[in-house]
Simulated scan of single mutants.
Amino acid sequence: MAARYGHGGDVMVADLVVHRLAFALRVDEHFSREPLGEPVEVRLDTGEPAVDSLSGSARHSDGTYRWANLSDGLRRVTLRSASGRWVRWDPAPLDVVVPVPDQKTALVAEMWPTPLAAAPPGVSTIRGKLVGAGVAGLRVEIDGTGAPPTGRWTFADAQGELMYLLPGGPWPMTAARLLDLTISIPGRTVAGVEVLPGPTSFTGAQFAIPPQREIRARFHVL
């Protein structure tokens, strides 16, 4: 509480407003599991606004969005990217029950890059297109050949296009020091891969790309 003096020496006492944190939600990029650098729209179905950061943005410097002074009860959270560069593919509804067990620990939601997103510098990135019948909305997984699955995945959009990031590692390498990768699409067969420019063609689902670069590829799907 702060005090200041008015004219004539009268003391005026300013009220101290205290906000009770209800919960914080961090929005991560799916492939890196790091906070999304771009602000997105995060809304509650009950309409309460998030608490702005000191910069005036709803996104705080640690990548969280925060709500305070909420009454107890269920809230459903929706995420939207105004730029169209990010999408939430997880089909599970994002529900939060207030009070949460631990207000100091942020809840986490993930978003996926769309083909409109920029490739992160130094990260192996595939801008892919599925070629074949009925490829819109197919789930795509790309892992190191012979390596355990990473648990990462994405969906092709209505045009069969996708953006797939390969951060971290180590990744299996070919003798030519290329990333040795295999694509899988549940319920479908990948007959071949073309890595552009060139193209460099591969038969089947196994293919190779230069590391730490952005490449384009066509995946032929049966």
Rank of each mutant, 00 (worst) to 15 (best):
198 G>I: 12
155 F>K: 13
166 L>C: 11
116 L>I: 00
150 T>S: 13
199 P>T: 08
200 T>S: 09
199 P>K: 12
135 V>I: 12
154 T>V: 05
193 V>Y: 07
156 A>T: 03
184 S>Q: 10
142 I>K: 01
134 G>T: 00
211 P>G: 12
190 V>G: 00
182 T>R: 12
205 A>R: 14
128 G>Y: 03
206 Q>Y: 00
203 T>Q: 08
202 F>Y: 15
194 E>Q: 15
129 K>P: 01
117 A>N: 09
157 D>S: 01
133 A>Y: 04
207 F>W: 05
178 L>K: 15
156 A>E: 05
198 G>C: 08
138 L>N: 03
136 A>Y: 07
155 F>E: 12
136 A>N: 08
118 A>G: 06
114 T>N: 07
212 Q>F: 12
194 E>G: 07
171 W>G: 05
208 A>G: 02
141 E>T: 15
116 L>V: 03
179 L>I: 05
123 V>C: 06
160 G>K: 01
160 G>N: 00
183 I>E: 03
133 A>D: 14
167 P>W: 08
210 P>G: 09
148 P>M: 03
209 I>G: 07
148 P>V: 07
164 Y>R: 09
126 I>V: 15
127 R>T: 01
158 A>P: 00
156 A>W: 04
115 P>I: 15
151 G>T: 12
137 G>D: 09
126 I>E: 02
200 T>R: 15
207 F>E: 06
